[in-house]
């Protein structure tokens, strides 16, 4: 239990000619909330899909809890994809059943309690839900597993600020204490105070990996402000950020 939860060594993923992740070296410990930050196309979703075993690395090594992604790691990873993958004729209750069937670590009572506080009735159809409600429902299900690693791909994209606060609070109060939460997002201002660490991805490279407080201390600015600075410079053809 002592070793790092996630270890990447020279991890490479390419899609044909396009290199999405290039020699990524990364270690992430346990009991942390980590932000995976980067502009669109920087490799965030690719990294998350590698971690949950939906993609195979093109090179290098990736270990979760000391194991390569496979049946064991999948049982330890709770994944919130960046888009809804459930059939929209299903009701909230069907989804809870679905999760209970699939995952032995799923806590049904917890999920039902969360749904109640979200005012989602078991009989509600997914089709009739707003985008924000769908996001919240999916998150409730994902956070109701007792996993070691929660991979949340853009959990707050496309929902209103009040719902974002609710979602961040749900993550804070529901992650299990030995579990690590990896949140990919570009809405940094909304997640910053919840994070222990931030990982900056730029064109498939990790350009910075540090604790949020260390960044604030060294840079004298918020992670959000630093992000804007790094990626604005690039947009106007400036120098690449290196450290």
């Amino acid at each position: 239990m002592k070793e790092d939860l996630i270890v990447c060594r020279d991890l490479v993923k390419d899609y044909g000619k396009l290199t999405a992740l290039d020699q990524v070296n990364l270690t992430i410990g346990r009991g942390r909330i980590v932000g995976l930050l980067g502009p669109n196309g920087s490799g965030k979703t690719t990294l998350i899909k590698l971690l949950c075993g939906l993609l195979q690395p093109s090179g290098g090594e990736l270990l979760i809890d000391g194991q390569k992604p496979g049946p064991y790691t999948k049982s330890q990873v709770s994944y919130l994809p960046d888009r809804m993958y459930f059939a929209d004729w299903m009701k909230a209750k069907d989804l809870t059943d679905f999760f209970a069937d699939f995952y032995p670590d799923f806590d049904r009572t917890k999920a039902e309690d969360m749904c109640r506080s979200l005012k989602i009735e078991p009989g509600h159809r997914i089709k009739s839900m707003s985008k924000g409600t769908k996001e919240k429902l999916q998150l409730a299900l994902v956070m109701s597993r007792k996993a070691q690693l929660y991979l949340l791909d853009e959990p707050i994209a496309g929902v209103d600020p009040a719902a974002r606060d609710f979602i961040m609070n749900t993550i804070l109060t529901n992650y299990n204490e030995n579990g690590t939460v990896l949140i990919s997002t570009h809405l940094i201002g909304d997640v910053e105070r919840v994070l222990d660490e931030a990982i900056f991805l730029q064109m498939g490279h990790v350009v910075r990996h540090d604790s949020v407080d260390a960044i604030r201390e060294e840079e004298g600015k918020s992670v959000d402000a630093l992000f804007r600075e790094i990626f604005r410079a690039e947009a106007y053809g400036g120098e690449h950020y290196d450290r």
Partner: peptide, 17 residues
């Protein structure tokens, strides 16, 4: 720590510090 962290909307590790 957990109560305070939830109230402030911050990470429990940060509150712990």
């Amino acid at each position: 720590v957990r109560e305070l962290a939830a109230e402030a909307g911050v990470n429990p590790n940060t509150m712990q510090r």
